[in-house]
């Protein structure tokens, strides 16, 4: 499966990898709260740049930026739609023929949304790359969240690579039957319809089989469950969590006042 975006844990020996999943979750959520407090996309871009040291210390500098290209088309759509049709438009930036115009407020709004998406994507992706799904489930269970909740998180993380590899096989099968997947956007969109049937049917079938397999291994048994992977919240985790929350308050207030 070439060039596909794979959401999955990459095992590396780094400080960030060794943190408790809860700590990393606190950092990620704090960053996400922060970008919704900020009032300017420039602040968001600064927060975005802060991913570089994080990624560097996780030894995943390159990988963490890989999914950005998949957001590109969303950015383009955001800028075009918001630039032309933002409801609170006031200032015309460029006048276009037929009464259309590109509005400054729309572009600002689009850059705000795009920068938020960008930050959420890279920080969220770094979290997924550095956290073993088993650890995450175990840590969530320690927080006394219901086991099923942990499983939902785990299943979501697992389903994406699986669907991607299934998608790749289906594309190959249809290409072998003369389906042309190169050309204009319309042509490509039309080409992808034959893929949805097998993909959807396959996913439903997979889910049913998975449920049976889980039940066969006593998934819903009513007793205390143990975990193969154990996670403990250490002193450094506590320190980092407190620091993160202090940083969130400081940055949040400053950004709000600026």
């Amino acid at each position: 499966m070439p060039r596909a975006l794979l959401i999955s844990y990459i095992d590396k020996d780094s400080f960030f990898h060794k943190l408790n999943p809860v700590t990393k979750l606190v950092i990620t959520i704090s960053v996400i709260i922060l970008i919704f407090i900020t009032k300017s996309f420039i602040h968001n871009l600064i927060i975005f740049i802060f991913i570089i040291p994080f990624a560097y210390y996780s030894k995943l500098t390159k990988q963490v930026f890989m999914p950005i290209k998949y957001l590109f088309i969303i950015f383009v759509i955001l800028f075009v739609i918001q630039g032309l049709f933002y409801p609170f438009r006031e200032t015309v930036l460029i006048q276009l023929p037929y009464g259309f115009a590109i509005w400054t407020e729309g572009l600002i709004y689009a850059s705000m949304i795009s920068s938020r998406l960008l930050v959420m994507l890279v920080y969220g992706y770094l979290f997924v790359l550095t956290t073993h799904p088993g650890d995450l489930v175990s840590a969530l269970r320690k927080l006394r969240l219901p086991y099923i909740f942990g499983y939902i998180v785990l299943a979501t993380l697992q389903i994406i690579p699986r669907v991607q590899s299934q998608m790749a096989t289906i594309i190959e099968a249809q290409k072998s039957r003369g389906l042309e997947t190169k050309g204009s956007i319309v042509k490509r969109l039309r080409a992808y319809t034959p893929l949805l049937g097998p993909l959807f049917m396959g996913s439903v079938q997979n889910a049913i089989e998975r449920a049976t397999a889980l039940e066969a291994r006593a998934f819903s048994a009513k007793c205390e469950k143990t975990s193969y992977r154990e996670t403990i919240i250490m002193k450094k985790d506590k320190v980092i969590m407190v620091l993160t929350i202090i940083c969130l308050i400081i940055f949040g207030v400053t950004s709000w006042l600026l």
Partner: peptide, 9 residues
């Protein structure tokens, strides 16, 4: 292909 479900739509 090996699995007919991958292509039937």
């Amino acid at each position: 292909f090996q699995d007919p479900d991958d292509q039937i739509f």
